[in-house]
Each structure stands twice: as C-alpha cells, then as structure tokens.
Design a binder for these strands. Structure first.
Length: 720
DNA sequence: AGCACGCCGACT
DNA sequence: GTCGGCGTGCTC
C-alpha cells in the first residue's frame, strides 16, 4: 500500500487530519500558496527583491537532473545581478525545506541558470532563496535558450544536457576583461568565384539585402569553396547581421579563418575551435555573446555560438561524421543549424562536394534550393575519372609488387611527370569484415551470422557479435576458402610504392601525422580519407583511389554515399581535366557510387538514394530512434511508452559486443553485459511526437527509478 | 543521488 | 511509549 503522504502534500486540504502538528504545518503552507499575496516579502529575515521576486532556475546537472524549472526567492541584495541568463548556485535536495524549527538547511549547492524572473510562483510551498549569483554575465540569452529547448525536444534529451554543449565553462578572469570594440559592417563583397555558379551572385545579393535564402550548394572541385564560404559570411555582415560557419575539423576551420581574414582583416570575426584551449575559447565566445564580434567560424560546438542578429548559418560537408556531437543527446550540426535558421530567421547554406540524403531531402521538400554550377563548368573543373576493376592484374612486375593495376600504375607514372600524386588508402581499422577473396561474399558466423574478424596476427577467426571462435572457413557462395584480410595500411602502401617508383619522394598523411599541404613537386602522397593534404599550386596531377571495395562493403545504409563523399573529397584536390588531372578509382564500375563519381553527379546519386530510402521506409524519409540497454529495461521501456499512432518497433536485437580494441562508444554495452537495441520508426511528420513520447517515458522511469535506465538516440547513425 | 517521512515491529 | 529498519517519493 502506498503512502498518501504525497497527495496531502500536494495540497488537498479536504483530508480529515489526525497528524496534529505536521498536518497543521502542511495546511499552513497550502494556505499561503493559495493566497500568493500572503507570501512573505522576506525570507528568513532577509528582504526579498521588490519587483519580480521569484527566479525560475534551470539546474544544470544534478544526481538526476530533472528537466524542468525550479522557483527560488530572490533576496534583495541579489536583485540587480540575478537577471535572466546569469549563472547561479542554488540549494537543491530534500532537507532544504524548513522543518519545524525553521533552521534546517540541507541539500548540496548546484549550478544553474536564471531563465526568467516572475512576480509569483505556482509552487505551493515555501521557496528557498538563491544561494549565490556566480557571475552577472548573462550567458544564456533568450535565443540560445529557445534553441537549446528545441534541440532537446528534437533529440528526446534534457535541456541541461544540451546546455552543457552550448554554454562553455566559466573563467572569472576572462569575464573581467573588456571585449574589443565592435567594428562597423564591411562593404558588400564582390561575387568573386561565386560567379561560376549561375545563382551564386544572386544568393550573395539576397543575403546582403537582409533576406534569408536557403541553399544546398554543390561545390565545384578545387580550393575555392573556402573563400566562397567566407564571402557568404561577409555578405551577412554587410547586411548588418551576423554569420556562423561550421566546418568539420580544426584544419578546415583554419583555412576558412584565413579566407575571412583576407576579406575582412582582423577583428570582425573569430575562430572557435577546441584547439584554442578553454580560456581563449571563452574569451572569444564572450566577445560573440556580448555582440562585439558578429561572425564565427568553428567546429561543431560553434553551432551554438550566440551570434547576435544572425543573418546566415552555413555548414560545410555535412556528411562528415564529426558533425555529430558524441555527447548526449548527440545533436547533428545540420539539424541544429536548420533549427537556428528557422528560429532566428537567417539564411542557410549547406555546402559540400557531395550530397547527403538529408541534403537531398531539403531540396526535394523545397525547404532549400539547389545551388550548383552548369554541367559544362563542372566537367571542366573536375579531373578525368577512370575506373579499373579489382582483378585487373598488372603485367608489369613493379606494379604487381605495389598491388597496382596497370591503369593505376600508368596514371601515377604519368602524373609524377607533372606534379604530386595522391594515393588514397582506407584506414586499416576501417574494414570491419573479412570477405571471400574470390567473390567478396562477407564471411559470417555459422551460429549468428555476425561478421567474422581476425584476431591479432595469428589469423584465428572469431565472430564480432557472439565472440565464438570459428573453425576453418569456406565460402558458402563460391566454395572459396581464402579470406581477404584487412586493407594494407597507409604505411605499408607507402613502402611498396616507394620501391615501385624509386627516386620519387613518398609522404604519408594519416591519423597520427596529418599534413596540411604538400609542395607542387612530383611526389607520392599516401593518405587515409579525410587526411589528404592540399597540393599547393594547381593541385595534384593525379590521384589513385585504392581498395574501393573496402569502403563499399561496409554494413551501413550510408556506405555508398560515404564512399562517394570520400572519393569526391580526394578528387576535388586534383587538377581539372583540361589541366591534365586524372583520377583512377579501383572499384567495380557497375556500382552506383562509382558511376556517380565518373559523371561527377553527387546530386543525382543522393536523389536516387533518397528515393530508395523512401521506398524502404528508412530515414530521413521516416524518423527513427533507438532504445538501447539491458534486455529487461528495453522491454519495460517499450511496454510503457505511449508511442505515436503507426509507430513500428523493430527488434529488439542483441547489440554487437564492443570489441576489445575499439574504444567504447555510447550505446555499446559495458564489458561483460549483453545489451539489446530496439529501433522505433515513425512516419514523416511524426518525429516530434516520437521524441516527446521517448522523453516522457524516460523521465517517468527515471523519477520512479524503475529498473535500469536505457539510452535513447534519435537518428541513430548506424542502421543497416 | 540524498534525504525525510511514515509504517510497523521490537524493545524499554 | 520510543527507537530504528525499510520503502517510498520529493527535491523550488
């Protein structure tokens, strides 16, 4: 039998009472609450603020952060400082309330933000007072708060979690410094290389005029996109508004920063990246928050930068996985910037060499317009692309030693006569599966059909899902018995190429040592995808894209899109075909992404992928979310959740165990535990309802502490 | 998460 | 009566 304590406390004064003093105390607080005017103007003897004496506070993180606002009394001496947006400390927790003697004080001090000041509280009970105003700096303005709320709702996460991503930690010393003077807006930019796009100058003009054009921009290959991005930001500044550019990594941010400096000089923009260190980052963030600087270029955390009067948000290369924040609730920069463009009435520019299905959907729904060059211009700017099958064995002994097909060998040799040659090799760890050497059929576990993996160097096989050892393997399709091992890494490829091309310098760029640029001289540059150095001058004379099968064989819905994105990224660094640039891709020419590369048609590829997704009911046409955790917890969660009409539950299925080598990602089970994952799918337009249902269920389960918590992920990245 | 409150059994 | 273990629910 449950106690009726809560109900009485809740304020039903009609209960007959036998609990003497206790009940009298409760009645008293209820009476006070029902007559707000009777609320004392003092708190434990201290005077309260005369105007708006109640602060609504968001508690930043508690043991269990409760995703709602809490009312606190504002003492008179904090009245002036406790303005909306400032950081405060409050006592929170049972024991805070005044007990009989009225002297008790308990609960820990927690950090929070004043969200608003109001005249009265709805709370039926005595309010505790704000303990402290940490700083009078209003760091959570109304626009940022609204954005964070929307992001929390979109991702079924808590506001506190989102604020942790959006508001940087405080440094008192930095706050004491003055921010620089706001410089006057620059003149409208000349179109520059934007005139290569028929709609380019018009897009800039619209931004300069103060309009809010939205575009999905397919960038021409070559190095001009960084300057074009900078020019778009200048257009927003020229309109008297602010600009925000988000790019995947610090290296890219530095390039765009340099272009902005070239156009604007110093002082009108800031670079915001993690590499700055917390203090410098806070200094720059404050300059933006105070309105002293109106343009920002940065990596994903900058997507929340509180730019005043936002006129343009732009995102470069939305297919790059680093645009997904790894911290809960894992918001994606593209989605956040879409929300910002809508909420803050800003122009939107999504640029890339490739196109994601999400970008294709923005175009298809008419939310954004395509911004691309004419076919003839594209063809002239892009290198010549040749394909070669994997089994095209080279006759030349040197080429065979380097595992290069004849066509690739010849392209490299020819390219080296004119400049540097890029060789793109997938990262070693990137290939998740072993496959039949003859027919490429992935090797699967005989028990659970999970992917087989090689353990260490000894060649023993085990299943990546159930961990069982596998005996001698033979291919169920073609009867082959040899497995294709993981891709040869960049280093060994470099060694082999060095032997094949004696006298040619070989440089490598990869995870550990990323080169920014290479000189315009003959050299072989071996790089993993994403780490390709920019070749100075005209660009690379040629590029070889090796081991295409490894990129395409990933068990991921996005494998084709991702392979194309990586190829385009490398090929865009190569000279145009009129300047003799050549790219050789080693992959089956019948495959859709390979054909899209040959035709340099990322928009067409994305449109077809989107159509496929629509037919299969996959995101982004439908909206999906995952629920991960111990099997009982997932089952209970699903039983309790009131999902929107027509929602489908797929699974749950066991989550593949986290591999010993790989770092644990959110959603992986802790070592030794078996977790399950269910996927939820709703029709287009029901995404918000799904997120709301998940959030409610999670909140109820956490509050009641029913069973173990589950992890929620809206837009799970690895379906397939 | 803490913490207080109420219930209920064990002991003075 | 009074003390304290334990279950439940609240935290402005």
């Amino acid at each position: 039998m449950s106690s009726d304590n809560g109900r009485r406390r809740g304020g039903d004064s009609g209960q007959s009472g036998e609990h003497g003093e206790q009940l009298a105390l409760i009645r008293e607080s209820v009476r006070k609450a029902k007559e707000p005017k009777a609320r004392p103007r003092t708190w434990r003897g201290a005077k309260l603020a005369g105007e708006l004496p109640v602060a609504r506070v968001l508690v930043d993180k508690g043991p269990v952060h409760l995703d709602r606002l809490w009312d606190y009394a504002v003492p008179a001496e904090l009245d002036a400082q406790a303005q909306p947006g400032v950081r405060v400390r409050v006592r929170f927790g049972a024991g805070t309330r005044q007990v009989r003697g009225g002297r008790r004080e308990g609960g820990g001090l927690l950090d929070g933000y004043v969200v608003e000041r109001v005249a009265e509280s709805q709370y039926q009970g005595p309010l505790a007072a704000l303990a402290q105003v940490v700083s009078p700096e209003p760091v959570l303005g109304p626009a940022l708060l609204r954005l964070c709320r929307a992001v929390a709702d979109r991702y079924a996460g808590s506001l506190a979690d989102v604020l942790q991503l959006a508001v940087p930690p405080r440094h008192a010393r930095i706050e004491a410094e003055p921010s620089p003077e706001l410089l006057p807006p620059p003149a409208a930019p000349a179109p520059g290389s934007w005139s290569r796009y028929p709609a380019g100058p018009a897009y800039l003009d619209a931004v300069v005029r103060g309009d809010t054009p939205r575009a999905v921009w397919t960038a021409l290959p070559g190095p001009h996109w960084a300057a074009e991005l900078a020019r778009a930001a200048v257009a927003a500044l020229a309109s008297g508004r602010g600009a925000l550019l988000v790019v995947p990594d610090g290296r890219t941010a530095a390039r765009v920063d340099a272009e902005l400096t070239a156009l604007l000089g110093a002082g009108r923009h800031v670079l915001l990246t993690a590499g700055l260190g917390p203090e410098e980052r806070y200094r720059r963030w404050l300059a933006v928050n105070r309105g002293a600087v109106r343009a920002v270029v940065g990596t994903r955390a900058a997507m929340f930068a509180p730019v005043r009067d936002l006129g343009l948000v732009a995102l470069w290369d939305d297919g790059d996985s680093s645009h997904s924040d790894p911290s809960a609730p894992q918001p994606h920069a593209r989605e956040v910037l879409e929300l910002r463009a809508a909420q803050e009435k800003a122009a939107f520019l999504l640029g890339a060499f490739g196109r994601t299905v999400e970008a294709a959907q923005l175009v298809e729904t008419g939310w954004a317009l395509p911004l691309a060059a004419d076919r003839a211009v594209v063809r002239a700017a892009a290198p010549r692309i040749r394909t070669v099958g994997e089994h095209d064995e080279a006759r030349d002994a040197a080429a065979r030693a380097a595992r290069l097909p004849t066509v690739a060998w010849e392209a490299a040799r020819e390219g080296l006569r004119h400049g540097p040659v890029l060789v793109q090799v997938p990262r070693r760890g990137y290939v998740p599966r072993l496959a039949c050497e003859r027919c490429r059929e992935p090797a699967r576990c005989a028990h659970c059909a999970g992917p087989l993996e090689a353990r260490g160097q000894d060649g023993g096989l085990h299943c990546g899902w159930c961990g069982r050892e596998s005996g001698p393997w033979h291919c169920p399709e073609c009867g082959g018995f040899r497995l294709r091992a993981q891709v040869v890494g960049a280093r060994r490829t470099a060694e082999e190429l060095g032997r094949a091309f004696p006298g040619v310098p070989v440089r490598t760029s990869g995870r550990d040592h990323v080169l920014d640029t290479v000189p315009d001289r003959p050299a072989l540059v071996v790089s993993t995808p994403g780490a390709e150095p920019v070749a100075e001058g005209l660009g690379y004379a040629a590029a070889l894209l090796l081991d295409g099968w490894a990129l395409l064989n990933r068990p991921d819905l996005r494998a084709g899109e991702e392979a194309l994105r990586r190829w385009l990224g490398a090929a865009a660094l190569v000279r145009g075909q009129e300047a003799g640039g050549t790219v050789v891709v080693v992959a089956d020419p019948a495959l859709r992404p390979v054909q899209a590369l040959v035709r340099w048609d990322p928009a067409g590829h994305a449109a077809r992928e989107l159509a496929d997704r629509a037919e299969l009911g996959f995101p982004p046409v439908s909206r999906m979310a995952s629920v991960t955790g111990p099997p009982e917890a997932v089952a209970e969660f699903l039983a309790m959740a009131e999902l929107p009409d027509g929602a489908e539950v797929l699974g749950p299925v066991p989550v593949p165990a986290a591999l010993p080598g790989r770092p644990r990602r959110p959603g992986d089970a802790p070592p030794g535990e078996r977790w399950e994952r269910a996927l939820l799918r709703v029709r287009p337009g029901q995404g918000a309802a799904l997120a709301a249902a998940l959030k409610t269920t999670q909140a109820v389960r956490l509050a009641r502490r029913e069973g173990e918590p589950v992890r929620l992920r809206v837009d799970p990245p690895d379906i397939g």
